[in-house]
Design a protein around this nucleic acid. Structure first.
Length: 316
RNA sequence: GGCCUGGUCGCCAAGUGGUAAGGCAUGGGUCUGCAAAACCCUUACGCGGGGGUUCGAUUCCCCCCCAGGCCU
């Protein structure tokens, strides 16, 4: 059975560098599972381009992949910032890549912090390919969740019973379910589960550390990119006309935009970025906690290198 | 030395003589195309300290402490 390795964990835990190491050792190629690294022109704020990483000796950018130290990393620069991108796009792009890599006799190494993307690709989480219905979405803006839920109940009462109360209060998700139900008759009908889980031997590696350590590391990174090119990157994105895109309204980027437009100071922007990163790390840890198949490695453990070495031995 | 204002959860901050809003942060959680998203839940037997009045005070009175401002 063919092998696939996945590496997950919160930002800053070192997923990419471990992925590169494993790729070199095992004759593999990396697939990035990150909802922000797919965008062109967003290199520093997404950490595609780590600042001051001496381990990186060569770096070539191509559309859809970068080649770092001779190792291909797929999933970078797939689309421009003004284009739609979502789980389904990710799986459509990554799944063929997995087969492609296997077909060349190499090992696919999926590394990323977007838990939903990783799970959808591996088959641990379902998704659907129903396209957004802009009319429905516009209409829903002026509706209450209850109204959306009622509409959904008319079409698909079964799903309503299966949903928990948290979901029923989440308008964004209810609109999506209604969208799917309207297109397919029921939410269940649209369910897609990736087949990878059953056709590959998957090794899941989780990288983690103490909360405080991760927070401090993320804060240090924030300071580094703030001084080292993030502002220029954001200015460039704005100049290219991408001011109102998803990437610029997300964490790390939005405070910089607000600083550039004069709403907040540099210091405030930095604090904002740090606080958003801490929050993000927390949510990532909560997400990955669910998957009991993940073997966790603590990067602060002084036997970390040794344990990784043992892992490499066993996966040869 | 005198006068004034203020001292409420980690931070910001409402408020009442009848038993402490809210925001942020924190922590937990949900997850079928926005997932670095969206949403849900969670946090002060306590309102600077000590007396007093009262059936009852965080809220009223007295003293003290602290912070800021002003005056001599």
């Amino acid at each position: 059975m063919n092998k696939l390795i996945s590496i997950v964990g919160p930002t800053g835990a070192g997923k990419s560098s471990l992925a590169l190491q494993l790729a070199r050792r095992l004759n593999g190629e990396v697939i990035s599972a990150d909802s922000r690294q797919v965008y062109t022109y967003a290199d520093i704020g997404t950490n595609k381009k780590p600042l001051g990483d001496s381990a990186i000796t060569t770096l070539e950018k191509h559309s859809g992949k970068w080649v770092v130290n001779g190792i291909p990393i797929w999933g970078y620069d797939i689309v421009d910032p003004d284009q739609d991108f979502s789980v389904s796009h990710f799986v459509s792009s990554a799944l063929p890549k997995v087969h492609d890599i296997l077909g060349r006799g190499k090992v696919p190494i999926v590394a990323g912090g977007t838990g939903y993307y990783v799970e959808a690709l591996l088959g641990d989480s379902s998704y659907s390919e129903v396209s957004p219905d802009s009319e429905l979405r516009d209409w829903s803006k002026h509706q209450k969740v209850e109204k959306i839920v009622e509409e959904l109940r008319q079409i698909d009462p079964i799903i309503i019973n299966e949903l928990n109360t948290d979901a029923l209060m989440n308008k964004q998700r209810m609109v999506r379910y209604l969208e799917i139900a309207q297109a397919k008759g029921s939410v269940k009908n649209a369910e897609i589960i990736s087949p990878l889980k059953d056709s590959l031997e998957i090794t899941k590696i989780g990288l983690a550390a103490e909360r405080e350590f991760l927070y401090r590391k993320a804060e240090a990174w924030a300071e580094k990119i703030m001084q080292g090119g993030l502002v220029d990157e954001v200015s460039q994105l704005i100049d290219l006309g991408y001011k109102d895109t998803k990437i610029l309204s997300g964490i790390v980027y939005s405070p910089v935009v607000r600083n550039i437009t004069g709403e907040i100071s540099v210091a405030e922007a930095l604090e904002n970025i740090k606080s958003q990163l801490r929050n993000y790390i927390r949510r990532q840890l909560i997400w990955f906690r669910r998957d009991k198949e993940i073997s966790w490695y603590f990067i602060t453990d002084n036997t970390f290198d040794q344990k990784i070495a043992e892992l490499l031995e066993s996966s040869q």
